[in-house]
């Protein structure tokens, strides 16, 4: 079981407040992603749950027990670090066995658990190697192996994929999601990459400057961003945010419309503009348009749509999918 509750958790370094006050409920077996720009406090929050940082205030409750001031080892959590933090002087086997050894388990039990984990993670042939002899992806799997053998109440991931190249990152995303389905253990995953958040999470927590901006499933966040920050952060390419006259027409201060919710035409539409850069991805085409009296608008259209630089086009946003925000940036 692994439910985690944060009650009024806060953190300050000296007089600087990093996290003002956070309440959050994480259910057993959930895959929760903390996402936000760098410096938003997401890693600090994770480290506080892990016990690597002191709380300045509030309580952390794991499975109904107050763990706020327990040592990291006593909390029954496993962590996968950004740098993998493998022990360079131990073999892969030694690395995976280390937490079990620290737990004082007997040799036979350790051996079985290490081999099982290695099997799950395709590391059986590498058990004798040192971390230095492994590729980035393999190191990542060893770090995960070391985390799963303890059978923790929850896994904590601190930007685990940021050191991998793009192709490998895609693979590891799938592997971690797979693992979550197999183990059905609570996972808390920190990233600054909204794609990782969207693809993996059951529940996304969007953080900004130490505050929770919104909590919800990926699609909830995509469809109903509560404010301008979430609207701009979730979704790729970014949502177009328009201010001024066009927004006032809709009784809003800021008007948001996603690139995929704009129809583009060479002949007619609501907004007139001039084509700037066109990015052909094959499946899609992103067109950056300088719209008259509105500003830069990004449009996502199908891969076959052809335009030239400087060409005049017309854009029509889908009325039902407009997001309207008030002066404070809150959704209306």
């Amino acid at each position: 079981m692994g439910s985690i509750t944060l009650e009024k958790v806060s953190k300050s370094f000296g007089t600087t407040s990093v996290i003002p006050e956070i309440d959050l409920e994480i259910n057993d077996g959930e895959f929760v992603v903390f996402v936000g720009p760098s410096g938003c406090g997401k890693s600090t929050l994770l480290r506080m749950i892990a016990g690597l940082e002191d709380l300045s205030g509030g309580r952390i409750i794991i499975d109904g027990k107050d763990m706020s001031s327990e040592a990291p080892a006593k909390r029954g959590l496993s962590m996968v670090f950004q740098s993998y933090a493998l022990y360079p002087h131990m073999s892969v086997y030694g690395n995976i066995a280390f937490p079990l050894k620290m737990d004082g388990q007997d040799k036979a039990a350790i051996d079985k658990k290490v081999k099982d984990a290695a099997h799950i993670l395709n590391l059986t042939n590498y058990l004798d190697r040192r971390p230095g002899q492994l590729s980035g992806g393999q190191r990542q799997r060893v770090a995960i192996g070391r985390a799963i053998v303890r059978q923790p109440k929850a896994f904590l991931f601190d930007e685990p994929l940021s050191n991998l190249d793009a192709a490998l990152r895609g693979n590891m995303r799938l592997e971690i999601s797979d693992l979550h389905h197999q183990l059905a253990t609570t996972m808390i995953y920190v990233t600054h990459d909204q794609i990782e958040a969207m693809t993996m999470a059951d529940k996304i927590v969007v953080l900004n400057a130490g505050r929770i901006e919104q909590v919800g499933s990926p699609l909830e966040l995509y469809r109903n961003p509560r404010n301008v920050f979430v609207a701009g952060f979730i979704g790729s390419p970014r949502m177009n945010l328009v201010e001024g006259q066009e927004a006032s027409k809709q009784n809003a201060v800021t008007l948001g419309v996603r690139p995929e919710h704009i129809r583009i035409s060479k002949t007619e539409g609501a907004w007139k503009g001039v084509v700037g850069v066109t990015e052909h991805l094959g499946s899609d085409t992103f067109i950056h348009v300088q719209a008259d009296g509105i500003g830069k608008i990004t449009v996502r259209t199908d891969g076959d749509f052809a335009t030239d630089h400087g060409q005049t086009v017309y854009l029509t946003p889908e009325a039902a999918r407009l997001h309207r925000f008030d002066a404070n940036g809150h959704a209306i």
């Binding site: 892990a50 016990g51 690597l52 040592a71 990291p72 080892a73 959590l77 496993s78 962590m79 670090f81 950004q82 740098s83 933090a85 493998l86 022990y87 360079p88 280390f98 937490p99 620290m102 737990d103 070391r146 303890r150």
Partner: peptide, 18 residues
Amino acid sequence: IPGEILEAARMDGASLMK
């Protein structure tokens, strides 16, 4: 020596001595 490795040891249940 990266601090994360020592933190990893702490998460893995090692006491300060260990």
